[in-house]
C-alpha cells in the first residue's frame, strides 16, 4: 500500500505535457504537485464522469494525451466507461486510486471495498494495457512503462484510505479553469 502523496508524486514525474484531469481525493492534492493550465481540477464534477470527459479531450487532442486521476468510488459509478475507453482507443491513462472509501464524504466504505478487482474489470472490458501497483517502490519502478506508449491504459494504485478528510476544493473557479485549459491547448479566449 502507498499514500496518496506517494502515488501522485510519481504521476507528477511522468505526466509530461499531457492534460491531467483530477477528481475526488486526488483533486484536493494534485495542485500541490502541478498547477499548470493543463491541470484540470474537476470540481464541481459529475461523479463518475472524469474518464468520459478525458476520453473526449483525448479524441479531440490525440497527439497530447490525457491522464485521469479517478477514485474507486467514482469508477464504480461509471463502470461502463471502461468498455467505452476500450471501444474508442485514445491516449487516455486512467489511474484508479483504490482506497476502498468515499474519502471526500468523510471515509465511508464503497460497495465491494476490498473485493472488487478493478484491474480484472478493466481487462474484461477490453483494455489491453492494465497495471496494478500495491507498493510505492513498485509504482516508482513501473510508472515509466505504465505511463508511456499508446492508450488506453488503466493503472490501479493501492492507496491508504484517509478518514475524516475535508471535501476538496478547486484552486480557482471553474470558468477560470476552463479558460486556462483552452489557453493551454492553444485556443484563443472566447
Amino acid at each position: 500500500m502507498m499514500t496518496l502523496r506517494e502515488a501522485l508524486e510519481v504521476v507528477a514525474l511522468h505526466r509530461g505535457q499531457r492534460i491531467v484531469v483530477a477528481t475526488m481525493s486526488s483533486a484536493g492534492e494534485w495542485p500541490k504537485w502541478s498547477d499548470t493550465p493543463l491541470d484540470f481540477i474537476y470540481i464541481p464534477s459529475a461523479m463518475g464522469q472524469a474518464p468520459s470527459l478525458g476520453l473526449g479531450l483525448a479524441l479531440a487532442q490525440p497527439e497530447r494525451g490525457v491522464l485521469v486521476l479517478n477514485g474507486d468510488g467514482c469508477t464504480l459509478m461509471n463502470l461502463g466507461c471502461l468498455v467505452t475507453l476500450a471501444h474508442h482507443p485514445a491516449n487516455v491513462f486512467l489511474l484508479i486510486v483504490e482506497n476502498g472509501l468515499y474519502e471526500v464524504t468523510g471515509g465511508q466504505p464503497t460497495a465491494g471495498a476490498g473485493r472488487v478487482d478493478f484491474a480484472e474489470l478493466s481487462r474484461a472490458a477490453g483494455i489491453g494495457r492494465v497495471y496494478r501497483f500495491d507498493r510505492a517502490d513498485a509504482w516508482r519502478d513501473g510508472a515509466a512503462e505504465a505511463l508511456s506508449g499508446p492508450g488506453p491504459v488503466v493503472v490501479c494504485l493501492n492507496v491508504e484510505g484517509r478518514v475524516g478528510q475535508k471535501t476538496p476544493k478547486a484552486p480557482r473557479p471553474m470558468s477560470e479553469q476552463i479558460a486556462r485549459l483552452r489557453n493551454g491547448l492553444g485556443f484563443s479566449p472566447s
Binding site: 470527459l53 476520453l55 473526449g56 479531440a60 487532442q61 491547448l185
Partner: peptide
Amino acid sequence: ALAAGLKLG
C-alpha cells in the same frame, strides 16, 4: 461528458 471533452478539445 464525452461530448464536453470533445468540445473543450
